[in-house]
Design a binder for these strands. Structure first.
Lengths: 338, 338
DNA sequence: ATGAAAGCGCTAACAA
DNA sequence: TTGTTAGCGCTTTCAT
């Protein structure tokens, strides 16, 4: 920059004004400006972004965190959860000129650093795991933060939040099954992973079934366990339901995958519905009917709310709840040609 | 930091040494160090990462670019190409403490900034599109750079490079088809997207077919075009081959998808093989046999080579070529139970 | 319309 | 073992 200034016969101040003072009345004569631009061009000058970030206390970067206690999410995992969410976040961030950074320390190491060290202008936090540690981290966050999957009320509306309407999604699934004539409907959970939204879904199931006048007893909540042991026990004991709603695609998918081992036909003997409608549903045979969350849209919304927060704009609805959809596939409707 | 120093009764220098001088003989008495740590803790001090980056001219971030002229790649696109590659890159980067940033300007706007403005310690460039502009950008890059899909020789080995062995992959596919008894084998290209590796694959096809003594004439190279018009013409004219190898999964998938319209059965009338073995293959019916690139591994390798370059370590093989595999699926072998 | 000067927070060379 | 000093590249008052 000094060199450019020297070459153009001005001071660095002027160079800065010409090259970086966007639009705001650049009080520099056009002749000088042109000389500066020419010099910069000749010297192949590039602004040093780090110096600028440092000086401006603004990085134009947002970080995406998922708290401590999870393995790293994969873009190409079995579920497309992370891929969908990130596509939305990246889209929303890019629209406003923000970069999106994935950063190693955040994901298991020491997120507290990222939450206060000036690295990011803002953060998006997605996690259903409500550990004490993550709680503490969020409460101590000193930069704008948007939550995904966690109600804004959890932190006295200090942070904006994006969620899907779990109750409505579950209702959709129950309606679908009842409409198909099912009466004995169970809900599959993983008791070793029953946090946040998962409990909400179970409760929504009970509530909506009650609305139809169907009682949900203990025997109608199948604990498949993350290792599937509970599921084997259920199948081994003979199925006592005609339809099962899984707390998420993983649980529901396990049902579809293991059913053949026990001579259970899906959907003829047992209809199955998942939650999330990830790509995994398409890979199963039969394909898995599932409640869909508009993940990409939720990600985009989160990014946009975050940008607003960063800019100090008021957010009118700090809690946005998106409706779920229902993707009907082979696990609830008999297959004709395939 | 000043406050911490004041509270601990020392100078900022000492604070810096205690808190950030990793391991390197921290010539500070333990008593003082403890006082500093305590003060930092009490004040909730966090280092300002931007200030440090600025001072150290090191950001511990790497950028991932794909050059100008492409749309943004999606994590959850039809192909899992980007998801696989990024998983590998992120994994490799995280192992060495580097963050990975996706940044809006890179993807269409002005990558030249990112290539020299101090934002990144290094860059990974993936692209098959060999435009003049991208050429110029790469040549002018002033930070360590690793190429994916472009031979190191293209830039006089100035940059390390990671590729898959296209020749060997194509050979694998031809062998498979010949082994199944096919003799009239065609190659499907998109002439409006025939760059870099795609031409290599076509040439490899010609060469390997020649090794079997099969001549590849113009009529054996089907130009499906990105809009599929050529493919419709081919089918409409009646198929003249028993097997077709696509330049990538997109081209091959189009064959599988359109065949039924023309009463062509896959694989009975026509066997089809793709290239890349993306998730898309699993979604087609029949599923698509395809040559696989170890994308995640290539991504990881690229990240690791980049870290070495950044650290000034010598790289013994600046050009790493990974062998391809062959994922046999329904489009080349008759389906039994499905 | 342009320039001078100060300072963002941190680290490293050198001095004590 | 600890302190002093200077400066990374940039922007921003404030003065000219």
């Amino acid at each position: 920059m000094r060199e450019v200034a020297a070459k153009a016969g001005v001071t660095p101040t002027v160079v800065s004004r010409v090259l970086h003072n966007k639009a705001t009345s650049v009080r520099v004569s056009e002749a000088t400006a042109e000389r500066v631009r020419q010099a910069a061009q000749d010297l192949g000058y590039r602004v040093n972004v780090m110096a600028r970030n440092f000086r401006e206390r603004q990085t134009m970067m947002i970080g995406v965190l998922h708290g401590i206690g999870f393995p790293r999410h994969e873009f190409n995992g079995r579920s497309r959860y992370f891929a969908c969410l990130m596509d939305g976040i990246v889209e929303g961030a890019f629209d406003h000129g923000y970069s999106v950074t994935l950063c190693p320390k955040l994901l298991g190491g020491s997120p507290e650093d990222a939450m206060a060290d000036g690295r990011f202008d803002g953060l998006i936090w997605y996690s259903t795991l409500q550990s004490e540690e993550n709680h503490r981290l969020i409460k101590g966050c000193t930069v704008p933060l948007v939550l995904i999957h966690t109600p804004a009320a959890t932190y006295e509306n200090r942070f904006a939040s994006v969620m899907c309407d779990n109750e409505q999604g579950i209702a959709l699934a129950v309606d679908h099954l009842v409409g198909l004539g099912h009466r004995r409907i169970a809900f599959a959970i993983e008791s070793d992973d029953l946090f946040g939204e998962h409990t909400v879904r179970l409760k929504a199931f009970r509530d909506h079934m009650a609305r139809y006048g169907y009682r949900v007893g203990d025997e109608d909540v199948i604990d498949v366990l993350t290792n599937r042991e509970g599921l084997h026990r259920y199948f081994a004991g003979g199925i006592r339901h005609t339809a099962i709603l899984g707390v998420h695609d993983g649980a529901a998918g396990a049902l579809v995958e293991l059913a053949p081992e026990y001579g259970v036909r899906v959907p003829e003997d047992l209809a199955v519905v998942g939650f999330d409608s990830t790509q995994y549903c398409e890979q199963l045979r039969p394909t898995l009917t599932s409640i869909s969350q508009p993940l990409a849209i939720m990600g985009r919304c989160a990014a946009e709310m975050l940008v607003k927060r960063i800019n100090g704009d008021t957010i009118h609805h700090p809690q946005v709840i998106f409706p779920c959809g229902l993707d009907v596939r082979g696990s609830t409707t008999p297959t004709h040609v395939r």
